[in-house]
Design a protein around this nucleic acid. Structure first.
Length: 119
DNA sequence: TCCGTGACACAAG
DNA sequence: CCTTGTGCCACGG
């Protein structure tokens, strides 16, 4: 037991993801960087796979704003649904990251909607 | 303790 | 734009 903090990493990941508000998303790499391991994006995915209770895993997407492939395709659709339900806008099957990406401590970096093109 | 796993990211074709 | 290959890391058995 007690390997370098047995699950310490995962725990930090869960704590962080729990802080992501509805309507916002973060990327695996972003989470990894925030917990102090910019190269451990994959480990973050592993932690999400464990799907700890109380963790809004659906707010974590890949660097392209897309829902990563996983064992259960159903869950993939669920993530899509949950996000849409929270008001997350999808563009061509991908989350509009510039618009929904959550920035730690940032008030709201969202762009000016009125300036966006009609379609 | 060592090895395989995997819900990623990035570079190159 | 898309697809394929390589690198990286922490966890579980």
């Amino acid at each position: 037991m007690r390997r370098a903090g047995s699950g310490g990493f995962d725990h930090e990941v869960y704590a962080l993801v729990r802080r992501v508000p509805a309507g916002r998303v973060v990327t695996y790499g972003q989470v990894a960087a925030l917990v102090g391991a910019p190269r451990a994006a994959r480990a973050v995915g592993q932690a999400m796979r464990r799907c700890a209770a109380g963790v809004p895993w659906h707010r974590v997407v890949n660097g392209r704003g897309g829902v990563s492939r996983r064992p259960n395709e159903s869950s993939m659709l669920t993530q899509r649904l949950l996000l849409t339900r929270e008001g997350v806008r999808f563009v061509r099957g991908r989350v509009d990251l510039p618009r929904h990406r959550w920035i730690t401590g940032a008030a709201r970096p969202r762009v000016n909607i009125a300036a966006l093109p009609t379609a």
